[in-house]
Design a protein around this nucleic acid. Structure first.
Lengths: 128, 128
DNA sequence: CGGCATCCGGGAGGATACTG
DNA sequence: CAGTATCCTCCCGGATGCCG
């Protein structure tokens, strides 16, 4: 198997991980330290309880986050990035930075594209 | 609206773009220069004609790729990364590098996790 | 060759209710 | 509080057929 092939295989696998929109958001939400489940749910905002649990399980399984249970009266569960998780955080943050930096460009490009490809019911359109 | 909020908005938008597994693969496939439609289809490998077209339209609309039509006898269409596309390529490549570097770690973590959480029908399991 | 239109099945993921 | 379980809907994306 060629190096290029293995390269593609690896890319595929990670893409399937970050493919769902939640993974990246959760990882960056954990960037600053341990976060409880409910707090995490508030930070990501928009995620359902189901998807949060599900995505966290996947990340834990992949060794990206660590799950710690404190058997107190109301159970407390904290999630933290593992060492691997922190290294993953860097490219993810780069992606985030790019998105912030190019938001305007993308919006402008979209409008331009839409104007060029969507002649919106022109009144001079008499040759129907 | 706070800066943190705009930050999140931007992240969301980009994540929705790279959310589908194809965008990243297409962008990296265009990393080295102009590529024709059919060649692109071969490089990404696994993508359907529909998704290739659809994803390319989205990327073109966002100003990530440029579409050039050469009105020759059999029509020739070439896709190229725009300047914005090339800058996006960097964080994407970083992500790719990470995935290659941590493939082993992730696999090991998965196996470990599965062993810990999936007591696979142990024969010593007598306290049923 | 490089698309677009249509049909359709499977799975992602939301809402809700219950548990430890 | 932090989940698990169930149902149910929507739409992603593949297959197919036709056009310029």
């Amino acid at each position: 198997m060629s190096a290029a092939h293995r390269r593609e295989e690896g890319t595929r696998h990670i893409l399937d991980r970050i493919g769902d929109r939640w993974t990246v958001l959760i990882v960056v939400a954990l960037r600053d330290g341990s976060v409880r489940f409910s707090e995490l749910r508030r930070r990501v905002e928009g995620i359902s309880q189901k998807m949060l649990t599900q995505t966290l399980r996947g990340l834990e399984r992949d060794g990206i986050v660590r799950r710690t249970v404190y058997p107190e009266v109301p159970v407390r569960v904290e999630y933290t990035l593992t060492e691997a998780g922190r290294t993953l955080c860097e490219p993810l943050s780069a992606l985030e930075e790019w998105s912030i930096a190019h938001l305007g460009d993308v919006s402008a490009a979209q409008e331009s594209y839409d104007r060029a490809h969507r002649p919106p019911a022109d009144s001079t359109d008499r040759d129907k």
